[in-house]
Every structure is written in structure tokens, then in C-alpha cells.
């Protein structure tokens, strides 16, 4: 499983959807992930990839971490994984 599929699998688990039903262009909110589930999703991604995601629930708009869509999330996780390896 590549990173992209892995991220989508984590999202699917949190959203209780089939990975095949997740459209990469979709905003996260459309997956039915509310604020509490989002915090849990961030934790699940950190655990899955052994990374630290800079996320503050009070400050979601101002963050450098892009959560606007599934695709953006894949890119952000990929970026953090690359930084960790460097």
C-alpha cells in the first residue's frame, strides 16, 4: 500500500466508509468527519506514519497544515514523512 492509499485507508476507517468511496477531491467535512473525529483522525495518521502533525483545534484555519481536502491531506502527510526521513 502506498502512502496515498494508506492515508485514504485511515480516513475511511474514521469516516466508516469504504476506501473506494472516498474521492480525493472531496473536502474532509463531506466525509462526515466532525471536529472530534478530526482530532482522532490526526492522531491515527500520526500513529500510522510516526509523524507529529501540528494541529490545534482552536486554530484550524490558521494552520500551516492543509486539511481542505483528501488530496491536500495526502500531500501534507507525504511532506511530513519526507521531512522525518531527511
Amino acid at each position: 500500500m502506498d502512502l496515498r492509499q494508506h492515508v485514504i485507508a485511515v480516513l475511511a476507517e474514521q469516516a466508516m466508509l469504504d476506501p473506494g468511496d472516498i474521492d480525493p477531491a472531496q473536502p474532509l467535512a463531506d466525509l462526515g468527519i466532525d471536529s472530534l473525529a478530526l482530532v482522532e483522525t490526526i492522531f491515527a495518521l500520526e500513529e500510522a506514519f510516526d509523524i507529529s502533525i501540528p494541529f490545534n483545534a482552536n486554530d484550524a484555519q490558521a494552520m500551516s497544515f492543509d486539511l481542505s481536502s483528501v488530496e491536500a491531506l495526502v500531500a501534507a502527510v507525504s511532506d511530513l514523512v519526507a521531512k522525518k526521513a531527511a
Binding site: V39, F43, F55, N56, A57, N58, D59
Partner: peptide, 20 residues
């Protein structure tokens, strides 16, 4: 910390710049 609601720098209630 796990809940992601803590401020890293200060408590600023009712301020637009509040962050936890």
C-alpha cells in the same frame, strides 16, 4: 495535549487571536 485544544503560548479568552 491529546485533545488538541491547548494553547502553546497564552490564554486569551474572547480575543480573535485566542488559540486554546
Amino acid at each position: 495535549e491529546g485533545l488538541r485544544v491547548m494553547s502553546p503560548d497564552a490564554c486569551r479568552p474572547f480575543s480573535l487571536t485566542r488559540n486554546g
